[in-house]
Computed example of a mutant assay.
Amino acid sequence: MIVGLTGGIGSGKSTVAAMFSELGVPVYIADTEAKKLMHTSPKIREQIVQLFGEKAYTQSGPDNAYIAGIVFRDKTLLTRLNSIIHPEVGRHFKGWYTNQKAPYVIKEAAILFESGAYKDCDAVITVTAPLETRIERVILRDGAAREAVEARIKNQWDEARKIELSDYVITNTDLENTEKQVQELHLRLIKAREQ
């Protein structure tokens, strides 16, 4: 069973993914794998350079700050970038998934809905937190300016839309409570898999 895990920036997806991992659930982090593929795939590199020019890559790999500076101001270019990367991540995930033996796996992706990847999931969990909490977390985590964080939030679906399409919602405002929600959901998912 494939369980999608998503949520807006700063909601705590990575924290929740780590909690599932601690319970022995195989977790695939789409953003991490996308970054690796941007480094290793000649096909992705070629398409990104065509889209953004030679400056998109340095000798050490993709210039993520340069690319982000462009795409978070231009939704069309963001969509085109995602159309380069996400099919490759989807193929990579399928290869990874075939090697898993657990009752279910977690596929964590920031834009699970936006990319359409949720359609390949048997269930979807959305992690949520109040908007102001999310903004503060990202400013603290990335040292980003508030305006930059707000621009990234505007490029993602709003939480209400994600929640509407989700099977489960985890509210991440207090770590102890979040952990309890993850453990309860883990048991429900194993039970669902056995039926």
Rank of each mutant, 00 (worst) to 15 (best):
V49P: 05
I125K: 13
I170F: 10
R80D: 04
E88D: 01
T6S: 08
K154E: 01
R146W: 13
I106Y: 13
T40K: 05
Q50E: 15
F113K: 04
K75T: 04
E132P: 04
Y28G: 11
I67L: 07
G53W: 05
K94V: 02
Q181G: 09
G24N: 13
A102G: 14
A148D: 11
E88F: 02
V71P: 02
F20R: 15
I190F: 12
D122G: 15
T133Q: 07
V89H: 06
T15C: 06
F113Q: 01
L140K: 15
H186N: 15
E88C: 01
Q100V: 14
A145D: 13
I153D: 01
L185N: 12
F72N: 01
K75P: 00
I48L: 07
G90K: 03
E22D: 13
T58W: 02
L78D: 03
E147L: 09
G7M: 07
G10Q: 05
G12H: 07
R161K: 03
K35A: 11
T98N: 10
R141E: 09
S115I: 00
V124S: 06
W157P: 00
Y97V: 08
I9R: 04
H86Y: 07
H92C: 00
A148P: 06
D142G: 10
K55Y: 04
P42A: 04
A145V: 11
H186K: 13
I29L: 13
L140V: 11
Q195S: 10
E33N: 10
E22G: 09
N155S: 08
R161Y: 01
R161Q: 01
K101H: 12
L37V: 07
S21T: 13
T171G: 06
E179K: 12
M19R: 10
I85P: 04
R152S: 05
E147P: 07
E46H: 08
Y168F: 15
T128W: 01
T128L: 03
A30F: 06
V105W: 10
R141G: 08
Y168K: 11
L78G: 02
Y168I: 11
T128V: 09
W96M: 03
V71Q: 02
H86M: 02
I125N: 12
T173E: 10
S83P: 00
G95F: 01
V27D: 13
I139K: 15
S83N: 05
M19D: 10
I163C: 03
Y57E: 05
N82W: 01
L185P: 12
Y66W: 02
D142C: 10
A102L: 14
H92E: 02
A160S: 00
H39E: 07
G10E: 01
G90L: 02
S60V: 09
A123F: 12
L78Q: 06
S41L: 01
P62L: 05
K191H: 15
D63R: 04
A34Q: 00
I70N: 06
E132T: 08
R141I: 09
Y97G: 06
A56W: 02
T98C: 08
T79W: 07
I70D: 05
A151Q: 12
L23K: 14
K36V: 09
D142R: 11
I84Q: 03
A151L: 11
T79I: 06
D63S: 01
K36G: 03
E176C: 07
E54H: 09
A34V: 02
V127K: 02
E88R: 03
P103Y: 15
R91D: 08
T98P: 03
R73Q: 14
Q59F: 02
E108L: 11
L5T: 11
R45F: 02
T133D: 08
Q47F: 04
K191C: 11
